[in-house]
Design a protein around this nucleic acid. Structure first.
Length: 875
DNA sequence: CGTTGTACGTA
DNA sequence: CGTACGTACAACGC
């Protein structure tokens, strides 16, 4: 007898169903090419497919696809699969590309009009086992269970996704369903299949179906004996006998479809290496390439870059390392590991060598000059390393590249900002990582020298891929900013614990009193911080009118509660609002207080890759959202004080920078004139829109045009404007019409900006920073319109961010050698700690650098304030 | 204990 | 049905 292992193995795959699962399993934002082509289905399928090839080593191979939604089944029963929503265009478009990949890999792709992919699978499986093959069927459709027999094994994706395939041989099917594989369609016919829109017998599930079939021996016997079954289910069965027969007809896979090929024709062909490289390059697949070559046992004769193993790092003494660095040619990658804020080990690498040493005072002395020199250095996440070196007394010069910043500029929406990810993406290799869960890890992590070596190679890949304009943003804006941000984080800002704790106690007392009053108003205690409990009180017990819906009920947010106060006043609502305000403020204060370090200062971390537009974000704590709007909240800002040994805080902010950028980008003559006359912007615009002279613009008119102007930057609609201003939609509409009648170029610009982004697939700031927008062509209206608003905002917000960064690092450079230092950046505002006797110089530098950070068609206006604390300085 | 949803602070 | 963020808390699911 022929053993299984001696048999040739035929693998047949349902390409459609598996790619479809991958499409939903993988986040599209991670799988979109720079042209906006979605690739998640292709990637997921191929990834699973190469694993399958590697594990099963088939000798013969085919992948089948459906040709369309229509088949002989839909003709027999028009409702078949009629409940399925339209196949997303983003998925459909991936199928031809996937087929192209498979053809390039030497895999036979089969389709047959009027039949489903599973019928092709069934036919090949039947012929294969007849011809003496061991057959593997891989499909995401449960109906293929009927194909399983001693020669045919089904590989079925588990719920976790396509990466995990469960094996069904006859024993596994019996174990799972209690019946032999050939009887599975009988179960399915009785139970029904919602995904195919085939209703079964009501109240009959798998358990009952199996019981009946075991009892009667076959479906026909069961249907003949339906009269003998008692109870409601028996009645149901008798009423639905025709449905069951229909289901059984439809779920039978055809094993005699006429095909142009038989199993013997499906021998694996050798892949077309160049074709695979070409199509993968188009799809921007990197890691997949070596995996494909490996899986089919081919050799990539033209490897993009030989996957050299990391060189074993040479351990050097302090002097040797310094000498090595000084003698190194070209760029050197640097990795400083940090322990308790200080350098621990240093690893350096060129393309051919990797060396490292432990940190010591000797090393600091020996390496210091090279570190601060202009010798070009490449890092991965430079800022924390620069900070550690800074604490050790070393300044860093020659920062030439940071792979994490470059990766962010290349793809700002991608969440994974690690070297490991870049190594996979650009080198197709795996960064050796120690398992942090193990005390004694089984695998060694990469040493600092090896990390540097990877960093350097990743940098080369990124440089190749980054468009010129984006490289300029990296070099001319982001990298110089790193140095400034590192110093700002090290400096921190002095915050008064005394002021905060006093205020916190005050607010705590007030909140407690408000809570008690609120409980008294409704006669019971509730958790005022629980939206769920509040909903019970407001809408059930107090029977107040329902507010806007949320996923979990009705909103209790401040806006809705204010509406409620007008429509149906209740003392509880007002107390709740006041309580919210007091607790929110207290919470901010306590958080801030807890963040005060031993030096009496708060050190935030700026996340340079923290936004998709180019802005910074601030964490631990976030110092970019310290309250300012109310009188009370400004007491928090008053706790941010000038530090010991300094004279004053200086605040400098850009006034209306986004509207100025709008004027610049749109070239609107009216808006440009507004900024050049020096008249208050909203007064000027109000005068034009309402056809009055500037002095006759009422506060109400000013509020309206101000909301409109800012709304434009965010893609506001008439609906949103009416809501914000609490005016009729018709009035909002006519306001917009009037506005655009006077400032038409603004509308033209906004329209063309979105249109251009649709064509290019991305937006660009004045300085060339890009943000991709694949969803602008989505057939899904919600997705598309969200993308349109974001695309309209991105160049404006992004250009403002660029301008502020340029001003920031230039000011930081100008202050070198002086005592004064930049402390905070809040998007359009800087806070600077001014040393004794330096006020005039600092003010001059700040005004000059901020004013000249960009050459726009309108001036950049800078407001400067001075004070002993942040609140004072803001005026 | 980690994730999700709501609410709210800033530009 | 207005962009971009981070944080706190409650509730839920494991």
């Amino acid at each position: 007898m022929v053993t299984d292992s001696a048999k040739p193995t035929l693998l047949v795959v349902d390409g459609h169903s598996l790619a479809y699962r991958a499409f939903y399993a993988l986040p599209v934002e991670n799988f979109t090419t720079k042209d906006g082509q979605h690739t998640n289905g292709i990637y997921g399928f191929l990834s699973m497919f190469v694993n399958l090839l590697k594990a099963e080593k088939p000798t013969h191979l085919a992948v089948a696809f459906d040709t369309s939604r229509e088949s002989f089944r839909t003709r027999e029963y028009t409702e078949y699969k009629a409940n399925r929503s339209e196949t997303p265009a983003e998925f459909k478009g991936q199928i031809p590309l996937l087929q192209e990949c498979l053809e390039a890999m030497g895999v036979t792709v089969l389709t047959k009009p009027d039949f489903e992919a599973d019928d092709i699978l069934a036919t090949l499986a039947a012929r294969g086992s007849a011809d003496g093959y061991r057959v593997l069927v891989c499909s995401g459709d449960r109906d293929t269970i009927q194909l399983v027999d001693d020669d045919v094994t089904l590989l079925y994706p588990s719920v976790q996704g396509v990466s995990q395939l469960k094996r069904y041989d006859p024993e596994a099917v019996v174990e799972k369903y209690g019946l032999a594989p050939e009887m599975y369609p009988d179960i399915a016919a009785l139970v029904g299949e919602t995904s195919d829109n085939l209703p079964g017998v009501p109240k009959v599930g798998e358990k009952t179906a199996v019981k009946w079939l075991t009892q009667f021996g076959s479906l026909d016997a069961l249907l003949d004996g339906a009269d003998t079954i008692k109870g409601v289910v028996g009645g149901n069965l008798r009423e639905h006998i025709e449905d069951v027969r229909r289901n059984r007809r439809l779920n039978r896979l055809l094993r005699d479809v006429e095909l142009p090929v038989g199993p013997d024709d499906l021998e694996m062909r050798s892949l077309d290496a160049q074709a695979v490289r070409d199509v993968f390059a188009r799809l921007e697949f990197r890691t997949l390439l070596p995996r494909v070559f490996e899986a089919v046992g081919a050799v990539d004769d033209e490897p993009a870059e030989a996957a050299t193993p990391a060189p074993s790092p040479r351990e050097l003494s302090a002097d040797e390392l310094a000498a090595w660095a000084a003698g190194a040619e070209g760029e050197v990658a640097v990795t400083v590991t940090v322990l308790s804020g200080l350098p621990d080990r240093v690893g350096l690498a060129t393309r051919t060598e990797a060396v490292e040493a432990s940190w010591s005072d000797e090393l600091a002395d020996a390496l210091g000059p090279w570190i601060s020199s202009d010798a070009p250095k490449v890092l991965a996440d430079a800022k924390p390393q620069i900070k550690a070196l800074g604490r050790a007394g070393l300044a860093v010069g020659g920062l030439a590249f940071d792979v994490l910043l470059a990766g962010w500029l290349q793809r700002p929406s991608f969440p994974d900002r690690t070297l490991g990810h870049l190594v996979e993406r650009y080198l197709g290799e795996k960064l050796p990582e120690a398992d942090p869960s193990q005390l004694v890890p089984e695998t060694e992590g990469a040493t600092p020298a090896q990390l540097s070596w990877y960093t350097l190679r990743v940098a080369a890949g990124l440089r190749e891929e980054l468009p010129e304009s984006v490289l300029t943003v990296l070099t001319d804006i982001e990298l110089p900013s790193v140095i400034a941000l590192a110093d700002m984080e090290l400096a921190g800002v002095s915050v008064s614990h005394e002021k905060l704790s006093g205020f916190s106690g005050e607010l705590g007392g007030r909140a407690e009193k408000l809570a008690q009053d609120a409980y008294a108003a409704i006669g019971r205690e509730v958790n005022l911080g629980s939206p769920k409990q509040l909903q019970e009180v407001l809408f059930e017990e107090l029977q107040l009118p329902k507010t806007r819906k949320t996923k979990t009920g009705y909103t209790t947010d401040a806006g809705a509660l204010a509406d409620l106060q007008e429509k149906a006043p209740h003392p509880f609502v007002d107390l709740l609002l006041q309580h919210r305000e007091a607790t929110k403020l207290k919470q901010i204060i306590d958080g801030l207080d807890a963040a005060i370090g031993a030096d009496g200062r708060v050190h935030t971390t700026y996340v340079q890759t923290g936004s998709q537009t180019g802005r910074l974000s601030s964490t631990d704590p976030n110092l970019q959202n310290i309250p300012v709007r109310t009188e009370e909240s400004r007491r928090i800002r008053a706790a941010f004080e000038v530090g010991q040994g300094y004279d004053a805080l200086l605040t400098a902010d850009y006034s209306q920078i986004e509207m100025r950028i709008m004027a610049h980008l749109s070239g609107d003559p009216g808006l440009i004139e507004a900024f050049n006359t020096g008249e208050d912007l909203h007064r000027f615009v109000g005068a034009r829109v309402f056809g009055v002279s500037p002095e006759d613009v009422t506060p109400a008119m000013r509020t309206k045009v101000k909301a409109m102007s800012y709304g434009l930057v965010y893609g506001l609609s008439a609906f949103g404007l009416s809501k914000q201003l609490r005016i009729e939609q018709s009035e909002a509409k006519s306001l917009m019409l009037e506005y655009f009648a006077r400032f038409g170029a603004v509308r033209d610009y906004l329209r063309s900006a979105v249109e251009q982004a649709r064509v290019d697939g991305y937006t660009e700031t004045i300085f060339g920073r890009r943000r991709p927008f694949p969803d602008l062509t989505s057939p899904n209206r919600v997705l598309r319109e969200n993308a349109e608003r974001a695309a309209l905002n991105a160049p404006i917000q992004g250009s403002a961010a660029d301008i502020m960064k340029i001003a920031l690092f230039r000011i930081h450079e100008d202050l070198r050698g002086m005592g004064s230092r930049v402390l905070l950046q809040i998007h359009d505002e800087l806070v600077i700690e001014v040393a004794s006797g330096e006020w005039d110089d600092v003010e001059r530098i700040v005004r000059e650098r901020m004013g000249a950070a960009a050459e726009l068609t309108v001036p950049l206006d800078v407001q400067v304030g001075r004070g002993a604390d942040w609140n004072e300085a803001a005026h």
